[in-house]
Amino acid sequence: MGKSATTKDAQALFHSLRSAYAATPTNLKIIDLYVMFAVVTALIQVVYMAIVGSFPFNSFLSGVLSCVGTAVLAVCLRIQVNKENKEFKDLPPERAFADFVLCNLVLHLVIMNFLG
């Protein structure tokens, strides 16, 4: 009986999560997709490393950190352009995007350097 209550709760939770998320604007959804993609890529690389080995360690590191970094920066961008975030009301989305691009540029310059 307890188990069925848990599954019911989980189902309700899932539904409410889904309905809540459906209200998200499309541009935020795109960013979410981007983040998911980056995270999944990082996970694939980690799994590959676990199977094959981490020999060119700098390549592995730059690959994973590139994905993680991209994801983190995209999350930051998402936080900044989210209309519901009161903290960033004065920040125009253009400025947020420019910062995002700059940060990405630095990140990937470093990664290209580190790739070896």
């Binding site: 920066l73 930051c76 961008l77 936080i79 900044q80 903290e87 960033f88 920040l91 947020a96 910062d99 995002f100 700059l102 940060c103 630095v106």
Partner: peptide, 8 residues
């Protein structure tokens, strides 16, 4: 400030 520019 919460600015990515300064984070960089």
């Amino acid at each position: 400030t919460g600015s990515l520019f300064y984070a960089t």
